[in-house]
């Protein structure tokens, strides 16, 4: 987990491509969708998702949102499960370095646009930052109601009884809600929303976050958003309040007892260590020690 200078664009920006890869017609269409998404917090807006130079499931939705938002003055950070140095994060950061020539960083505080897969940084985000989530499945009800037309109607009616029954059945069978990631949230008291597969541990960070949160699902062709300072409540019951999970351990590198931890198997005899999932947070803490 080093901070090696792997962001070098390798020969500068690519010739023959529009700024940030997408053509201007596509950007305009995505920009219109983004504005409507911000105006209706938590509502999924369909958009004409384009074929990107990487497969669906590798963040094509997030990349298209980032490409429509980012400008030459932005500083981009990309994380994958909290880490800046994993394949997906490195590839996407290098992609924007080459097609947009933007500055990139691994430090949360220095970034203006942060594209993320499956985590929210531990460092609190501030006003003026934009957090772009890569979303595999935008529909929170899809395991409970497979018909897309029917889920649209349920959202229109605000009828989320199915999800409450699912949570109730978890509690009845196992004594607690057994969703540890992609834990459904209510946005502004109106729309049920998938937070993307972030750990439930991260859900409270979404509530009244000062940064703008944008969500892009490339394969499913949906965009949605949460404006700053918007109420985001994890679904729960009065007698079974929402309780985010965290491994009961300290980070083996920085000793943090507050951050979200990854479990790392170290040998074939049951050895394991817990490490911060957010590499930037962990490195900064170690540098301060």
């Amino acid at each position: 987990m080093s901070a090696a200078p792997q962001d070098a664009a390798g020969g500068g920006t690519l010739a023959g491509y529009n700024f940030a890869y997408l053509d201007e017609d596509t950007k305009r269409m995505i920009r219109r969708a983004l504005l409507k998404a911000v105006a209706i917090p938590g509502h999924q807006v369909p958009f004409g998702s384009r074929e990107m130079p990487l497969p669906y499931g590798w963040g094509t939705g997030g990349i298209q949102v980032t490409a429509s938002v980012i400008g030459p003055d932005d500083t981009l950070k990309v994380i994958d499960q909290g880490a800046d140095d994993t394949t997906n994060a490195v590839s996407i950061r290098r992609f924007f370095g080459r097609v947009a020539g933007v500055a990139t960083t691994e430090r949360t505080a220095e970034a203006t646009v942060i594209q993320t897969r499956h985590r929210i940084p531990e460092t609190p985000l501030r006003e003026g930052q934009i957090l772009v989530y890569q979303v595999p499945m935008p529909e929170p009800l899809f395991r409970l109601e497979p018909r897309v037309a029917e889920t649209r109607r349920l959202h229109a009616l605000g009828d989320y009884g199915l999800m409450h029954v699912k949570l109730y059945e978890d509690i009845a069978r196992r004594g607690e809600v057994t969703i540890s990631y992609n834990y459904p949230v209510m946005v502004n008291g109106r729309y049920l929303m998938s937070p993307s597969p972030i750990p439930a541990f991260d859900n409270p960070k979404m509530d009244r976050m000062p940064a703008l949160q944008l969500f892009g699902a490339g394969r499913e062709k949906r965009i949605y958003a949460v404006p700053p300072y918007t109420a985001v409540r994890s679904l729960d019951f009065e007698d079974h309040p929402f309780r985010p999970n965290r491994a009961d351990a300290a980070c083996a590198l920085c000793g943090s007892r507050d951050s979200y931890l990854d479990e790392v198997v170290t040998d074939d005899r049951g050895g394991r260590r817990f490490l911060c999932s957010d590499t930037d947070y962990c490195e900064r803490r170690r540098a301060e020690q």
Partner: peptide
């Protein structure tokens, strides 16, 4: 390209 991006960010910021 650059002007549309700058205008969009101004409107996105204003809308959010």
């Amino acid at each position: 390209v650059a002007d549309a991006q700058g205008c969009f960010r101004a409107v996105l910021d204003a809308m959010s």
